[in-house]
């Protein structure tokens, strides 16, 4: 049921993106998120599209799988697209039907904003698809290290993130299990009026929450039993290695940024 979801999922295949240092990936994505907003004409959007497609190609993740997994997010994009089309009233009037008026500016805005959304979604989902949760948090911890000096709890934060990421698949499995158990008791999750469907969620959510709380407590006990005492003096088993690929990635993004600034 939840099989198609690819949110927060890691796909263990071999690719240049998989080999990258998580810090480089995180930096690339942060910069990318910022520069996406620089684009404002066809050429610059084209550049972003090329970058996004290249990243997908380098990740070795089947495109069909990626798109299937993000299908339900496309509805949100479509929704924002229509919002822009119907409510931005700039430029020439293109089409008029009753109270519906579509302006050139609206169409342009709609397409651009949706594309922006689309690029952001694809690139950020590539991060979790090609990086294990542990790598991601190691990367975050390492990038935030300078903040330690001002007393920011870097280690605790990264621990929280890694626990959250770690339990996404577990919760998904459990959702699936409980859904099935309740379906066996006659619940219909896919049919009925909106009210009926909303009601059908209760027998799913309550057990899910109860189990999540129970698990959190067990985890805390297990960590304490194994002598966990926070990040002070703790060494790492996995060391991060910055390589050539990472230099290339950062350089590419640097060039992308300059091009975007020049062409906008």
């Amino acid at each position: 049921m939840m099989e198609k979801m690819i949110f927060g999922r890691y796909i263990p295949v071999d690719s240049p993106l998989h080999k990258m240092d998580p810090r480089a990936k995180l930096l690339t994505i942060i910069i990318f998120i910022a520069v996406v907003f620089l684009a404002d004409n066809t050429l610059t959007y084209g550049l972003l599209a090329i970058f996004t497609l290249a990243a997908i190609w380098l990740s070795n993740i089947p495109i069909k799988f990626l798109f299937n997994g993000l299908k339900f997010l496309f509805w949100i994009i479509l929704f924002t697209f229509f919002l822009h089309i119907f409510f931005t009233k700039e430029g020439d009037l293109l089409y008029k039907f009753g109270f519906i008026e579509i302006y050139q500016g609206g169409l342009r805005q709609g397409i651009f904003i949706s594309l922006r959304f689309f690029f952001l979604l694809l690139v950020t989902s590539l991060l979790t698809l090609t990086t294990t949760p542990i790598e991601i948090t190691d990367g975050i911890e390492s990038l935030l290290k300078p903040l330690k000096k001002v007393g920011f709890p870097v280690h605790e934060l990264s621990l929280m993130i890694s626990i959250a990421l770690r339990f996404i698949p577990t919760l998904m499995d459990e959702t699936d299990k409980i859904m099935k158990a309740q379906m066996a008791r006659g619940v219909d999750f896919s049919e009925g009026t909106i009210k009926q469907r909303a009601k059908a969620v209760v027998p799913l959510l309550i057990p899910l929450f109860i189990n999540a709380f129970k698990r959190a407590e067990e985890l805390a006990t297990a960590m304490e039993a194994r002598g966990y005492r926070g990040g002070e003096g703790r060494t790492k088993y996995r060391l991060l290695k910055w390589g050539m690929i990472d230099n290339i990635a950062i350089l590419t993004l640097f060039i992308l940024t300059i091009l975007l600034l020049l062409l906008r």
Binding site: K177, I178, A181, A184
Partner: peptide, 13 residues
């Protein structure tokens, strides 16, 4: 066909 899943107590709500 009634199914009692593993650890069925997890479905109580």
């Amino acid at each position: 066909v009634g199914i009692v899943f593993q650890f069925p107590e997890h479905q109580l709500f």
